[in-house]
Design a protein around this nucleic acid. Sequence first.
DNA 1: CTTTAATAGGATAAATAAGTCCTATTGCTA
DNA 2: TAGCAATAGGACTTATTTATCCTATTAAAG
Lengths: 146, 146
Amino acid sequence: MFTKACEYAIRACVIVAQNSLKGNRVSLKEIARAIDSPEAFTAKILQQLVKSKLIYSVQGPQGGFEMLSSNLEKTTLEHIVIAIDGRESFSACVLGLKDCSEINPCPAHKRYKHIKNEFIQMLKNSSLLEMVHDIEEGKAFLKISS
Amino acid sequence: MFTKACEYAIRACVIVAQNSLKGNRVSLKEIARAIDSPEAFTAKILQQLVKSKLIYSVQGPQGGFEMLSSNLEKTTLEHIVIAIDGRESFSACVLGLKDCSEINPCPAHKRYKHIKNEFIQMLKNSSLLEMVHDIEEGKAFLKISS
DNA sequence: CTTTAATAGGATAAATAAGTCCTATTGCTA
DNA sequence: TAGCAATAGGACTTATTTATCCTATTAAAG
């Protein structure tokens, strides 16, 4: 589905969002610990997210990552996935055919079409704000609940 | 979604199924040409499909691959995907969390759940027979329609 | 029974994804 | 303004996936 990098990216964004909502900036170290990911690799992914302007970074002591609270609602899974895996990752033909389309459908096309559409809608509709709310309310978790 | 190997596997199965329905055995060369895949790599994948008993092979001159016509309806995308990519490939957490579950859901869980279920149902319900029929009726294609 | 056309399978290579390491840069703080 | 705590970024390593090559095995057909 998603690459490992993208999974980490989504999880990292949730942590940054959650902290930004509380007015806190989070460091790479804190993020990596919170989402249980390798620090150096996570650093690369955060760089990409910064370049894509989904989050921003502050260097130096007391630095770290944050996002504007006003962006929590606008930023969705779709934005993150496009930034890391690219748009093709979820719009491509399920059988890998270059020229699969409505006119030239692959044998799985008609069966997969509505699922792909729902998936894309899910990505568009899942904002960081909602996901953070779910975590705050104990309805979702990024690690073992404890 | 699927690995390249799995995409080739599905496409290869469709070709084998289509020919078996007509009482023809198909060679590796024919399959690779029909699905536009690298021959040697496709050979490996066909070996896996044979080991999984989704198709069977005959060595020697006039040899090749085929399946029992009676299996066309039973054999679904699910069987092929499990044989090549494994069951986890479509049952795992979308955010890559080891312990994501109903009780300990990830922030995307509830949004993704019904899509995953539909996807799994689609895999279960898509038989080779139906896909071959679609091709025979000109409703689906594995290559550019021409 | 030899030749030959096919698949089986092991070893290897190439490409990509995942992950690490080290140095540069930035900017706060004493 | 020196020191330090943080991110930025380039170079590298490792793991996995994708792909190729070569030899063995099988079985039909002359």
